[in-house]
Design a protein around this nucleic acid. Sequence first.
DNA 1: CACATTTGACCTGT
DNA 2: ACAGGTCAAATGTG
Length: 290
Amino acid sequence: MGFLSAWPETLSSHEKRVVEELVNGKDCATQLQILFHNSSENGGPLSAQELVHKILTSFDHSISLLTRAESVEVSQNQAASDYDSPCCKKRPVTKEKRGCYKRRKAEQTRTVASATVEDGHAWRKYGQKQILNSEHPRGYFRCTRKYDQGCKATKQVQRMDDGSQMYQITYIGTHTCRPDSFKAPQIIKDSESWRSYKMLTFGDSNIPSNTTAVKQEANEETTETTTTTSGLTDMDSVIMWKDILGADYGDVVSNVYSNTEITSQSLELDLVTKPVEFEVDFEFDESEFV
DNA sequence: CACATTTGACCTGT
DNA sequence: ACAGGTCAAATGTG
């Protein structure tokens, strides 16, 4: 709620509708979560169904709205932000194949908008670039398992220019690393870590230089589970969204900031929930990627 | 010391 | 030619 009122005027009515829909969906999801939590013995499947239906509708609307709009891509009209990199000190460049690589052709990509860059995977930053007409630099991340397991997943994170705290995150490729090799995201109770990360990476404000970014992949006060249709263990606090919603929904994200995560593809289903009281040992079932 | 981040250089696609 | 994506040396951190 404060979220909506805090949303900048720059949003089009279309975008506002999308946000409303997503927030609505989020609220329903939250209720559902509480419901599940309170009724550990299958009590209340009926109301749960209703909620699920509402969630479905809500996200359905959002997705169709977004895919219609297609270009939610940050229409930054202002220029400025010159790329005046202090690239004056040339190194004794003895490079063999510096910067030599094969650019990947149109892999599976999905772009989401989120208030957090955390997604439960362990990423390592390998680059940052100032993007033309964008206020904020874009960060380039690869899966930490790139070399041990050849995981090709990468992501690009860029803070939106609309003044919100949202980040546009583009995931490229899917994780091919093994589930058990995922670094379980820590539940960071103190919000400093996350704040520091944001500050460090995207230069929010005064930054305590005592944090290592990216390692702290877990968002404050959020737990995240990435689930697939197969084989989750008996973690009773993990909600199997795919089972509930069917596999046709993309990412669904909800967190303390009421962030929205939107995607036009449904590669996997992520759920970020505020741990009402859940304490979950994270487990990632990425079997569909293996 | 090992691993992560930073950042200028360099490469590719348009 | 330019913008953007990746590499890798330098640097930071625990």
